[in-house]
């Protein structure tokens, strides 16, 4: 995507060098801003999913509000005709061309939102309680198992919340300008469990 002679450099919305909390195994909750990722908003009518169950290495034909794939490539189905696709930042062009190839002939739209969203992971024994400070959803195992992903709220900010693994690790995605609010809201909620938070 970049030309070789680029003079400009990136300034991420949230610094990623340091996790906000101690990363040691005893920590009850660890909050960590994520590095840059490639992200696309894919829109495709449900009827056009037939014959295009997979694209760009991820499964599209998954239930609404679930996520499939790996840390490398994932598809998150946010609604009947909306997916958030993610992958390594440098794969952006590859992902776009793979989607184009897989969906050609259908009506779909693909919009690059790599810079729109910011990701933060929240993991550890107390992660769900911390998230439930601002998120009104039921995050119990039965209601929000690994693989669940949905748009919802964190305090006054809209987020996409997904559960990545059984640690549990959750990923919170929000728009860039809300990222300090969301991070600080999580830090404030985590403080009682993780007094090491600065």
């Amino acid at each position: 995507m970049l030309k070789t002679s680029h003079a400009a450099h990136r300034d991420l919305s949230l610094p990623i060098e340091q996790p906000v909390t101690r990363p040691d195994t005893k920590a009850q909750v660890v909050i960590r801003p994520l590095p840059a990722q490639a992200r696309f908003s894919l829109r495709l009518n449900e009827a056009d999913l037939e014959g295009a169950q997979t694209a760009a290495g991820v499964t599209l034909d998954i239930p609404i509000n679930t996520r499939s794939g790996s840390a490398e490539r994932s598809s998150i189905r946010l609604g009947p005709n909306e997916w958030l696709l993610t992958g390594p930042y440098d794969d952006a062009e590859v992902i776009a061309s793979q989607i184009d190839a897989a969906l050609s002939g259908r009506f779909y739209t693909l919009v690059d939102v790599s810079h729109r969203n910011v990701g933060i992971t929240v993991s550890g024994r107390r992660a769900a309680e911390v998230l439930n400070s601002g998120c009104p959803l039921d995050l119990a195992e039965a209601a929000f198992p690994t693989g669940m992903a949905t748009r919802t709220l964190m305090g006054k900010a809209e987020i996409v919340l997904m559960r990545l693994d059984d640690t549990p690790t959750y990923q919170v995605e929000c728009w860039r300008s809300f990222s300090t609010y969301v991070r600080d809201y999580l830090i404030e909620a985590a403080r009682e469990f993780e007094p090491s938070i600065a």
Binding site: L2, H6, A7, A8, H9, R10, D11, S13, H115, R116
Partner: peptide, 28 residues
């Protein structure tokens, strides 16, 4: 070196451009 959407528009009445670059590159 950054991909941009360059608008030649003006909200001032002067010669003007509005340069859209991916956010992380905005400040640079």
């Amino acid at each position: 070196g950054i991909p941009c959407r360059l608008f030649r528009v003006s909200f001032t009445g002067e010669l003007g451009f509005e340069i859209n670059v991916p956010s992380d590159y905005g400040q640079s």
